[in-house]
Design a protein around this nucleic acid. Structure first.
Length: 352
DNA sequence: AAATCGGACTGT
DNA sequence: ACAGTCCGATTT
């Protein structure tokens, strides 16, 4: 007996993620073509992927799934019961919103989501505090720190105008933008996460006329969406210390914040590469100064303030990392040329 | 082995 | 509809 008889399914076939992708410190995932890097482990047999970031190939935002097993098989959400997939080390790659915790909010473009834990397995009532060390919760904290994309799935439940009338809908990618511990009225501590939508291609079903204005959220994430796996590796290599000022910005959870800055910009018309030789680890201020042309680099990786054309710092580099002079030269020509000044490299050599 | 925002089945 | 019970698959 087919338990799915009578149910219309959309795109029920699942496709294994295809092509090559970057891996984290564990084994390479078989395949992935999404715009983000993907991670995963391969079992001894070499087939089972357990962690995968981004949207799997062949899956679209808005796609319907009849139950948790289908989500599992499509690599959209691997756990068959738990709401959060992930670990502290790897980060969390997906969540399911099913209204299982009071106080959650679903505003479409942003979500307030409770962590897991502290529930009586028999009564589904909260009987204990939640912990930031539970695997899924710690994973979402890691995803926040690393700006990893989180797949969001909505299940049928009351309280969300975006929830499907039955089954589950894959709702695309979100970023964790905040987390905090919260004391509930019943005296139990829970952990809460704010997630903001980062792929806008597929509109959510408009269920009310006054949708929240997503402009601010999209502005925040527009730079982070480009945070490639390589950029994350560079940040880790430098312990999140800016290569210009050597400052690391402390955040919560004993973590730090930095940004991966592409020297020759990606995309048209610049066509820079997402490669280690084209990425710097910078604090937000120097990243902005660099991207806005207030700072250029000599071939010797001296930082020049373009307002006064004076060197003010020598970039620090760590082992096995070099930025190609050609990329620095491209960036230099981009900004000095645009100001009608000579981009002749000789003018930027430090005078001995 | 424990934990997990399921799922199908029973009752009101 | 809804709530409780039992039986869970998968991952950690």
């Amino acid at each position: 007996m087919d338990f799915m008889s009578g149910v219309t399914r959309v795109g029920a076939e699942w496709f294994p993620p295809a092509a090559s992708c970057l891996s984290r410190p564990y084994k390479m995932a078989p395949a992935c073509t999404n715009s983000f890097s993907c991670n995963g482990r391969v079992s001894e047999g070499g087939v089972t992927m357990t962690r995968f970031f981004g949207t799997p190939a062949g899956v679209k935002a808005g796609q319907f799934f009849i139950d948790r097993r289908e989500l599992h098989e499509a690599f959209v959400h691997r756990p068959t019961q738990a709401g959060i997939s992930g670990t502290k080390l790897e980060g969390s790659d997906s969540i399911v919103i099913s209204g299982g915790y009071v106080g959650d909010e679903d505003n479409g473009d942003y979500i307030i989501y409770s962590g897991h834990g502290g529930k009586d397995p028999n009564s589904t009532r909260q009987i204990a505090d939640q912990s930031r060390d539970a695997p899924g919760n710690a994973g979402l904290i890691t995803s926040h720190a690393e700006a990893l994309p989180v797949r969001v799935v909505r299940g049928k439940h009351k309280g969300s105008p975006f929830a499907p009338p039955a089954g589950y809908v894959y709702s695309g990618l979100y970023l964790v933008t905040q987390w905090w511990m919260e004391m509930r009225p019943d005296g139990f501590q829970i952990i809460r996460f704010r997630l903001e939508r980062i792929d806008e291609q597929v509109p959510l079903e408009p269920q009310s006329l006054n949708l929240p204005d997503p402009e601010f959220a999209t502005t925040i994430v527009s730079r982070r969406i480009r945070d490639s796996q390589l950029a994350r590796e560079v940040k880790k290599l430098y312990d999140y210390e800016c290569q210009v000022c050597e400052q690391a910005i402390p955040t919560s959870n004993n973590a730090f914040y930095a940004e991966g800055a592409h020297v020759r910009p990606l995309g048209r018309p610049h066509l820079g590469h997402d490669a280690l030789s084209n990425i710097l680890c910078l604090c937000p201020n120097h990243h902005s100064q660099f991207d806005l042309g207030g700072l250029v680099l000599t071939d010797q990786m001296e930082a020049i303030e373009t307002r006064t054309m004076t060197p003010f710092a020598s970039l620090s580099f760590r082992k096995n990392h070099v930025v190609a002079a050609s990329n620095a030269g491209y960036h230099r020509a981009l900004w000095l040329g645009a100001r009608g000044m000579s981009s002749d490299l000789r003018l930027l050599q430090p005078t001995a």
